[in-house]
């Protein structure tokens, strides 16, 4: 578009890489901590590039012996050095997957109607959905804690799954509505002239056309459930915990187990990283609740 000199282009390229490197650095450093032995974490000056990698932290966190590669193999200690985070990872997966399924199902049905059917109060309804996105989680978590206590839903998968689905509903509804809006209404209408029912049109014609949108919505719901903190902190006690909440237990009175925490954190980031890269095409639309299209 604009013709630039060679040197200014070079400068720009350099600046771009430098800025992104600055943002990537904390992630890189966190990864090195996951592979560092205790003493190397506490080194001054901090060891950024030269350190002896070890899998010890991962072995301790998941209570398994990886026993290959780096350095000397250690015996995993029961209790003290062994956090057994496998089940917590499982809790995170169950909650994220099921709450995503619930949110996407409910949202797809509702947003089809919001996109396709004319009825009174449609705009008000969309505004209402949007306004639920504004509620501070703490204003939901406090009353829901007491309601769950009476319904015996505290500390259960059902309870957390429901609240995470709710948390993702505004995003899922608005995003799916924008994907349905992209498909011309004429497609529905001509099928209806041919005598197909609403349900059949939805199932056979429209739904296959928004597959990509459903995938993008599902990924975002998954990530927001995976990373959510306050609801799990409030609504669970000992029965289950997701990774973000259980990470805070690495801060103990005798010091923080940084290596173990970093190992768990690194393991928890991997699925989210992969998923987000898969739906990059729709990412901005998702982040803006369907209002900015790429």
């Amino acid at each position: 578009m604009v013709v630039r000199s060679r040197s200014s282009r070079l400068l720009r390229t350099f600046a771009g890489w430098a800025v992104v490197a600055l943002f990537a650095f904390p992630l890189y450093y966190w990864l090195t901590v996951a592979f560092k032995d205790g003493n190397e974490i506490f080194n001054w000056p901090p060891k950024v590039f030269s350190f002896t990698p070890t899998l010890k932290n991962f072995e301790e966190v998941f209570g398994i012996s990886l026993g290959f590669g780096f350095g000397e193999q250690r015996e995993v200690l029961p209790g003290g050095g062994n956090w057994r985070m496998g089940p917590r990872l499982w809790d995170s997966i169950v909650i994220a997957v099921l709450s995503t399924f619930l949110a996407v199902t409910i949202a797809t049905l509702a947003s089809y109607a919001l996109s396709r059917m004319n009825f009174r109060g449609r705009h008000h309804f969309v505004s209402w959905v949007l306004s639920t996105r504004m509620m501070p989680p703490v204003a939901v978590a406090i009353p829901v804690f007491f309601i769950y206590k009476d319904l015996k839903l505290l500390d259960t998968y059902t309870g957390v799954i429901l609240i995470h689905a709710l948390m993702n509903l505004p995003l899922a509804v608005l995003l799916m509505k924008s994907f349905f809006d992209d498909i011309p209404r004429e497609i529905d209408e001509s099928a209806m002239v041919d005598g197909a029912s609403r349900w059949l049109i939805f199932r056979r014609i429209v739904l296959p056309m928004v597959k990509g949108g459903i995938a993008a919505t599902a990924v975002l719901c998954f990530i927001f459930s995976w990373t959510e903190f306050l609801f799990v902190l409030t609504l669970t006690q000992t029965g289950l915990k997701t990774v973000p909440v259980v990470s805070s237990t690495f801060v103990t009175s005798t010091g923080t187990a940084w290596g173990n925490m970093a190992a768990l954190g690194a393991a928890a980031m991997i699925p989210a990283f992969i998923f987000i890269l898969l739906v990059q095409k729709h990412l901005v639309r998702g982040l803006t609740l369907g209002s900015v299209k790429q």
Partner: peptide, 20 residues
Amino acid sequence: SVLTLTLVVPPAIVGMMYLL
């Protein structure tokens, strides 16, 4: 693409990261 990565880290873990 690299810039999208910060968005998927749980904020609680980002807190820990900056604590360190």
